[in-house]
Nucleic acid binder design. Structure first.
Length: 799
RNA sequence: GGGCAAGUGGUGGAAUGGCAUACACGACAGACUUAAAAUCUGUUGGCAGCAAUGUCGUGAGGGUUCAACUCCCUCCUUGCCCACCA
C-alpha cells in the first residue's frame, strides 16, 4: 500500500510535461483549434489566490479540450511594464529591467508548481524590445491614419511627485503614493482616437453572445450613447448663440433659465460689461480652484451672468446663469434648466428662487396646477401641457415631434452625444514603451521611421522619484537626429500607458517570435479569435474595450479578418477570507505556495474549483482544503482493493458520472462535476471497483488533478500521458434508467412514491397512482378534479 | 441618482417550473486502537411525537400555475460598476 506523496509526484510530472513538450501547440489545419487564454499577470514575483483561481479554471478547460481531441493553444506571458518596477528602482536602487526579470523568474516558478498546461515556448514579456517594437509599430500606423494624435488637456498632476497620474491612481482626490492632493494641469499629451470607433464598439457588443450580460452593460454604459437635440438659444442684445444639449426636448417649454459651465468659452464675453461681472469672475475663480481637486463634492452653487436669452420655442426671455453643476466635458457645456422635470435643476432653482413651470403631467386633468406644490421634479412620462401646439401629446411622442419640428425650423438639431473620450496614453515615466516620435526645431513632430524601430529604452536612468520623467535626464536617449532633415532633434520622453501593451498581446501569442510584423497573418488566421478568455471583472471596461478597439483598428489595416477578439468571456469571482477580499493591507492573505507545500497543487486546484462556481465569490476555508485532500487520498486508496469485475450498478453509476462530468466541464460547472465524482467514489466504497472503472475515474479527474491522474494512470500500467488519453465516452444504454421513481402528489404535496418501469404509459401510471393506498387515504373517495401526469417524473392528483 | 448581481441548513453550496437542502465542511455516535491521530460506517433544517407520521420552511409581502428557490409585481438587505452625463 503506497502513500499519496504529492511532492514527489508533482515534481516528477511537471518535469515530464516539460521534457516531453506535452503542451506544445502547433497550428495544424486538420484538427479543430481551441485558443484558451487567461489574462496575463503583472509580474509581482508572487502569485496570489486570485491568480490561482483564474489560471486553474483556464487550465482545467484547456486540459479538457486537449483530451477531447482539440488542438489547444494555451499560452502564458507577462504584462511587465509599469509603475512598481520604477518604485522599486527608487526605493532599492535596483534597475527596473533586472528587478522585473527576477520577478518574472520567481512568478514562473510558482506557476510551474501549479502544474498549468502552458506552452512555455510561447512565453512573452511586454518589456522585451522584441515585443514593444510592435507596440511602436502599431502606434506609427495609428499616427499615419490620424488615430494617434497630440493635444493639450487637463490631466491629474501630483505636485509632490512631479508626475501625471492615471485616473485609477487618484485615490480619494489624492496621490496614491504620497496622498498629496492631486491637481489638474494643462499638458500636451498623446491620445488614441478610440472615439472614431465608438459606433462599432457599441454595435458589435451585439456579436458577443457569450459574454456576461453585466460586462456588456458596463461597456455600453462607458461608451454612453445618448440621443437628444442641440437647441440654439439666442442671447438678447447680442449676436451670440448658446447651443444646449438635452435628451429631454419634450420639456423645452418648461425651460426657465440656461446654465453654462464655469469654463465655458462664451462666459467671459457674456459677463463683460454687465453689473454682475465682478461677482461672476469671483465665482469662476473659486470653482476653478475647487475643481482642481479631482473628486470635488457636488454642489449647487451658481451666479447670474447679468444676461438673458430667448427660449426659441415660446420667445420667452430667460436668465443665463453660471453654475458648477454643469460640466464642460459633456454635451455642449451648457444646459437648459427645467426645474419641474429635472431633479438637479429643481434643487438649484429652489436654492436660487428661480421660476418653475410644469409641462408634463401624468394625465391632463391632474390637479397639481402650480409649481410651488412640487416637492421634487417629476422625471417620469406623461402628457404635454403648457407646450403650445404639442399640448395633449404623450411626452415620448412629443419628444420625436418636437425634434423634427426644430430641425425643420432651424431652432435645433437632432444629435447624439457620447460619454466615451479619447484615450490618453502619455505617461511621464521610464518603465514603458517609448513613444517613437522626435521633435525637430525645423520639421516639428516627426515619427521615427519603421526601419529604425524599436526605439529602445536606455538601460539606466536616474530614479529619484521627483522632477518628472527619468527619461528626460538621459542625454544619450533624448538627443538624436531628425529622421527628416538629419539635424539635431529631441526624442519624446513620454512612454505609453501599460494598457497599450495588453491591447494586442493575444495576437502576439499566435507567433511570439515573428520578426517581420506584430504577428504572422496565417498563424493569427488559424488561432484567432480566442475561443475562451478568462479574467477578473475589474478589467470589464478598460482592458476589454481597448483590446476590442485595437482589433478593429488592425482589421482596418487589413491585418485581421474578424471584428471581435474574444468569443467567450468568463469573469471569475474574487477570493475572500472572512468575508473580505484578500489584500496585503488587510493582512488576510493566504499564500498559495504554503498550501502547495502542505497539501500539493492538485489539492489546491480541487478545492478552489469545488468551493464555489467560477463566477461567484469564493470564501477561503482551510477545512475545505483538508476535505479536498481527503478526497484525493480516498481515490488513491481505491487501487488497493480492485476487483476483477465490478457490480453492474457501479458501471451504471460510472457512465452517469461520465455524462454529468462531461456536461459540467463543458459549462464550467466544476463544483458539481467534482460533486458527481465524489458520489461515484462513495458508490465504489460501498460496492467496489475494477480496473476499468478506476481508470475511467482517473481520466475524469485528469483535467482537475493532473499530476495525481498521471501517477495513477502510469501505476495502472498505461504508457504515455494521461492528459493525452481520450476523454471517456458514456454508454447511453447504461445511462438510461429502466426503473424510475415517480412522485405522487395530492394537491401539490408529496404523499407517496412509486417505483415503476421507465416506459410505462400515462394511463397506467395514473391508475397505479390512484390505486396507491397512501394516496387513497388522502383522496378519501372523492373523485379527483384533475390528474396531471408528467412522464417519468410525477403524478399530481387535484381534489 | 442610474445599471448589474446576489439573498437557500451551524458553514461553502446543489436544484432554473415537478421529491428543497445533492456534494462537502462542521457536529454527534459507532467500529478499529492501550490511547490518540488517520481510516471506515451511520445520524444531522425547525417544531410536535416513543414511533409511523404530521406540519412549517429558500430575505419580506402579493400574483400567475395542478405545481414556484425557480416566472411576474412591490419592497428590504448586501456586494460590484458608473455617476452633477443634461
Amino acid at each position: 500500500m503506497s502513500m499519496y506523496s504529492f511532492k514527489e509526484i508533482e515534481t516528477k510530472w511537471q518535469e515530464y510535461w516539460r521534457a516531453e513538450e506535452v503542451f506544445k501547440a502547433d497550428s495544424s489545419p486538420d484538427k479543430p483549434k481551441y485558443y484558451l487564454l487567461e489574462m496575463f499577470p503583472y509580474p509581482s514575483g508572487k502569485i496570489h489566490m486570485g491568480h490561482v483561481r483564474n489560471y486553474t479554471i483556464g487550465d482545467v478547460a484547456a486540459r479538457f479540450k486537449i483530451m477531447q481531441g482539440y488542438n489547444v493553444l494555451h499560452p502564458m506571458g507577462f504584462d511587465a511594464f509599469g509603475q512598481p518596477a520604477e518604485n522599486a528602482a527608487i526605493k532599492n536602487r535596483t534597475k527596473p529591467d533586472i528587478w522585473t526579470a527576477k520577478c518574472i523568474e520567481e512568478m514562473k516558478q510558482e506557476l510551474k508548481k501549479m502544474g498549468f498546461s502552458y506552452d512555455w515556448g510561447r512565453e512573452l514579456a511586454t518589456c522585451d524590445s522584441s515585443y514593444y517594437h510592435w507596440n511602436q509599430w502599431i502606434f506609427l500606423k495609428m499616427l499615419e491614419r490620424g488615430i494617434a494624435y497630440k493635444k493639450s488637456s487637463l490631466v491629474n498632476w501630483c505636485p509632490a511627485c512631479q508626475t501625471t497620474l492615471a485616473n485609477e491612481e487618484v485615490v480619494e482626490g489624492g496621490c496614491w503614493r504620497c496622498h498629496t492632493t492631486v491637481e489638474q494641469k494643462e499638458l500636451e499629451q498623446w491620445y488614441l482616437k478610440i472615439t472614431e470607433y465608438k459606433e462599432r464598439l457599441l454595435e458589435d457588443l451585439g456579436q458577443l453572445k457569450n459574454w456576461p450580460e453585466r460586462v456588456i452593460a458596463m461597456q455600453k454604459n462607458w461608451i454612453g450613447k445618448s440621443q437628444g437635440v442641440e437647441i440654439y438659444f439666442k442671447v438678447k442684445d447680442s449676436l451670440v448663440t448658446i447651443p444646449v444639449f438635452t435628451t429631454r426636448v419634450d420639456t423645452i417649454f418648461g425651460a426657465t433659465y440656461v446654465v453654462l459651465a464655469p469654463e465655458h468659452p462664451l462666459v467671459k464675453e457674456l459677463i463683460s460689461g454687465t453689473s454682475q461681472q465682478q461677482e461672476a469672475l469671483a465665482f469662476i475663480e473659486k470653482t476653478a480652484r475647487a475643481r482642481k481637486s479631482a473628486q470635488a463634492e457636488p454642489t449647487k452653487e451658481g451666479v447670474f451672468t447679468g444676461r438673458y436669452c430667448i427660449n426659441p420655442v415660446n420667445k420667452e426671455t430667460i436668465p443665463i446663469w453660471i453654475a458648477d453643476y454643469v460640466l464642460m466635458e459633456y454635451g455642449t457645456g451648457a444646459i437648459m434648466a427645467v426645474p419641474t422635470h429635472d431633479q438637479r435643476d429643481f434643487l438649484f432653482a429652489s436654492e436660487h428662487g428661480m421660476p418653475m413651470r410644469i409641462v408634463i403631467r401624468v394625465s391632463e386633468c391632474q390637479s397639481v396646477r402650480v409649481s410651488e406644490e412640487l416637492a421634487e421634479a417629476y422625471e417620469g412620462d406623461g402628457v404635454q401641457v403648457n407646450s403650445g401646439q404639442f399640448n395633449g401629446l404623450p411626452n415620448q411622442e412629443a419628444k420625436i415631434k418636437i425634434g423634427e419640428w426644430m430641425e425643420k425650423t432651424g431652432i435645433g438639431k437632432i444629435q447624439t452625444h457620447w460619454r466615451l473620450r479619447d484615450w490618453l496614453i502619455s505617461r511621464q515615466r521610464y518603465w514603458g514603451t517609448p513613444i517613437p516620435v522626435v521633435y525637430c526645431p525645423d520639421c516639428g513632430v516627426v515619427p521615427v521611421s519603421c526601419q529604425d524601430l524599436p526605439v529602445r529604452l536606455p538601460a539606466d536612468a536616474p530614479f529619484t522619484g521627483e522632477g518628472g520623467s527619468p527619461l528626460g535626464k538621459v542625454k544619450e536617449f533624448v538627443e538624436t537626429q531628425c529622421p527628416k532633415c538629419q539635424g539635431p532633434a529631441r526624442r519624446e520622453t513620454d512612454t505609453m500607458a501599460t494598457f497599450v501593451d495588453s491591447s494586442w498581446y493575444f495576437l502576439r501569442f499566435c507567433s511570439p517570435r515573428y520578426t517581420d510584423g506584430p504577428f504572422a497573418k496565417d498563424e493569427v488566421k488559424y488561432w484567432m479569435p480566442v475561443d475562451q478568455y478568462i479574467g477578473g471583472i475589474e478589467h470589464a471596461i478598460l482592458h476589454l474595450l481597448y483590446s476590442r478597439f485595437y482589433t478593429k483598428f488592425l482589421k482596418d489595416l487589413g491585418l485581421l479578418n474578424f471584428d471581435e477578439p474574444f468569443n467567450k468571456l468568463l469573469t471569475q469571482g474574487m477570493v475572500l477570507k472572512d468575508g473580505e477580499v484578500m489584500s496585503k493591507s488587510k493582512g488576510n492573505i493566504v499564500d498559495p505556495d504554503a498550501i502547495i507545500q502542505k497539501y500539493g497543487a492538485d489539492t489546491l486546484r480541487l478545492f478552489i474549483l469545488f468551493a464555489a462556481p467560477p463566477e461567484t465569490e469564493l470564501e477561503w476555508d482551510e477545512r475545505g482544503i483538508e476535505g479536498a485532500f481527503k478526497f484525493l487520498n480516498r481515490v488513491w486508496r481505491i487501487r488497493d482493493n480492485l476487483q476483477d469485475k465490478a457490480d453492474p450498478a457501479v458501471y451504471k453509476k460510472l457512465h452517469k458520472t461520465i455524462k454529468k462530468v462531461t456536461e459540467d466541464l463543458e459549462a464550467f460547472k466544476f463544483n458539481t462535476a467534482i460533486a458527481s465524482m465524489m458520489e461515484l467514489v462513495n458508490v465504489i466504497y460501498q460496492s467496489g471497483a475494477d480496473k476499468q472503472v478506476y481508470e475511467t475515474l482517473i481520466l475524469l479527474l485528469c483535467p482537475i488533478a493532473g499530476h495525481f491522474a498521471e501517477e495513477l494512470w502510469q501505476a495502472l500500467g498505461n504508457s504515455g500521458s494521461a492528459c493525452k488519453a481520450r476523454w471517456p465516452i458514456f454508454d447511453p444504454d447504461l445511462v438510461a434508467d429502466e426503473v424510475v421513481t415517480i412522485v405522487i402528489q395530492v394537491n401539490g404535496k408529496v404523499r407517496a412514491k412509486l417505483e415503476v418501469s421507465a416506459d410505462i404509459n400515462d394511463a397506467d401510471l395514473k391508475a397505479l397512482a390512484l390505486a396507491d393506498e397512501k394516496v387513497a387515504s388522502w383522496v378519501k373517495g372523492s373523485p379527483p378534479k384533475s390528474v396531471i401526469v408528467v412522464p417519468r417524473k410525477l403524478v399530481n392528483i387535484v381534489i
